[in-house]
Design a protein around this nucleic acid. Structure first.
Lengths: 85, 85
DNA sequence: GTGTATTTGTTCGTATGTATC
DNA sequence: CGATACATACGAACAAATACA
């Protein structure tokens, strides 16, 4: 379960899918499923797991990046940020 | 003409380029221009002939692969499938 | 064995058009 | 009208396997 399979989004919830996905990944990071400097799921994997468009997957990752929770390396993927300090 | 030069895609047609290209290759296979177990054009060749991005060329090939019309050998190319049976 | 070219695999960056709410 | 979402397309970079001189 370390991969969190079973998490689902509700496409008709008031909170848009991209935020729900960001929340799920945020929780996994907090739970240590994705650790510092290791890659979080690629956009394609997010698309596959949550059955959303790539643009939605990208937005979810963008939310986490803007929060500073992850950093994105072009053409490589997005990685969990190390605790600041 | 066995190489099909002259086939063109319409970038603004309702049918997207990647499907038009798949259709053209599909037709060539049906016409025997590309025969069983022989390679179809590489992604680069498709890019050159139809003047599309590689990602579009890949999608066209993916369509044919999903239809079972061709099989792709990693790092080698895509080949015409043999008639099932 | 080395080096280079070819070819597919992967991944992110960005833009446009359409549709829905 | 704005935000969200999906489909499509082009671009760029790099990896890995294969082929060949």
């Amino acid at each position: 379960m370390a991969d969190g399979r079973g998490d689902r989004i509700d496409p008709i919830a008031p909170v848009p899918p991209y935020r729900q996905i960001a929340q799920i990944i945020r929780r996994r990071i907090g739970a240590g499923e994705y650790r510092p400097d290791t890659r979080i799921p690629t956009e394609s994997e997010i698309v596959g797991e949550f059955e959303v468009a790539r643009s939605t997957a990208r937005r979810a990752v963008a939310v986490l990046r803007e929060e500073g929770l992850v950093y994105t390396v072009p053409n490589r993927g997005s990685y969990v940020s190390r605790p600041s300090g």
